[in-house]
């Protein structure tokens, strides 16, 4: 199977990559892990004339903790997040998510930067970074800039990136209660994209009042979304069964899923409610003293 012919370019620095993007504009594509782009090129849905491979640029793959944030380089492979002790300790929700993302071979090549640039409405990293209030750093000909994850996803497979910008890093504020997060994904078969998915990260005080909450939804709209109204509803509340009921109903209201092969809009709305409830119940269970308490 052969894509349309292209020129293969191997910049050695980010600066050089940006210059190439600026020069070739819409005719060029960045190649990261290739696990979304290569199949699209083979199907000739994507037809770049110039392929700019980031993989020969040193220093784009890292996971480090600094100033209360975990910084993840754009070219960091899914598997590196899976195996990272920093992630295990500081943001275990990411490890929960990566284990259900694609399959072993795809995780060995696919990158977090590529996955968010791809902006699949049913991808796994979208909801997680939205729940965690991550910031996305990118570089273009005019220099670097940062965006909130919420402003990054603009439509299905579409982001706020300019055609000549490269994602360089995802910076994630380390949650104050690392264990109180979970990612629940409903999928047809293991390794498939989500039908719907929910990422929840909470913080609570000793009386069980929800001090803060982040909620990201996958498969719930034409893009990964942050459930801002539901976060506002639950902040400062005790996560009682009644509060969860009201929140789940609100989730259904704000969701506007696309009907596709994975399910109709009605079906997705219904299961989203169920998965959301499951996610909240799971973090509450983790927070309860009998299961080890919150840390």
């Amino acid at each position: 199977m052969y894509p349309v012919a292209f020129d293969y370019l191997e910049p050695r620095t980010l600066q050089e990559a940006v210059e190439l993007l600026e020069k070739w504009g819409e005719n060029a594509s960045i190649l990261a892990g290739g696990q979304s782009l290569i199949p699209l090129m083979k199907l000739r849905i994507a037809r770049p004339r110039y392929l700019i491979d980031l993989n020969r640029i040193p220093g784009l793959s890292y996971i480090r903790e600094q100033d209360g944030c975990v910084h993840i380089g754009a070219l960091t492979r899914h598997v590196e997040i899976e195996e990272s002790s920093v992630v295990r300790e500081k943001i275990p929700i990411m490890q929960e998510a990566v284990r259900v993302l694609a399959d072993g071979q795809v995780r060995n090549l696919g990158t977090i930067g590529g996955a968010i640039a791809q902006a699949d409405p049913a991808g796994d990293w979208g909801p997680v970074i939205l729940a965690l209030n991550a910031r996305i750093k990118c570089l273009g000909p005019k220099g670097g800039r940062e965006m909130e994850a919420m402003d990054f996803f603009t439509f299905a497979y579409t982001t706020a990136l300019q055609p000549d910008e490269v994602v360089t890093e995802i910076a994630i504020p380390a949650p104050s209660a690392p264990r109180l997060g979970t990612y629940v994904k409903l999928e047809r078969v293991s390794g498939d994209f989500a039908i719907v998915s929910v990422a929840v990260q909470i913080d609570r005080d000793k009386d069980g009042i929800c001090r803060d909450i982040g909620i990201g939804l996958g498969g719930a709209d034409d893009r990964p979304i942050k459930a801002v109204p539901v976060e506002a509803l639950l902040r400062g509340q005790k996560l009682s069964p009644k509060a969860i009921d009201i929140a789940a109903r609100r989730i259904e209201e704000i969701a506007s899923p696309i009907s596709d092969l994975r399910g109709s809009q009605e079906y997705k709305k219904e299961v989203l409610k169920v998965i959301f409830r499951r996610a909240l119940e799971r973090v509450i269970e983790r927070a309860s003293p009998t299961t080890g308490g919150s840390r």
Partner: peptide
């Protein structure tokens, strides 16, 4: 050193 699908990689890489 890692298992990959060889239909998902260009030889040039």
């Amino acid at each position: 050193g890692r298992q990959v699908k060889s239909c998902m990689v260009f030889a040039a890489q």
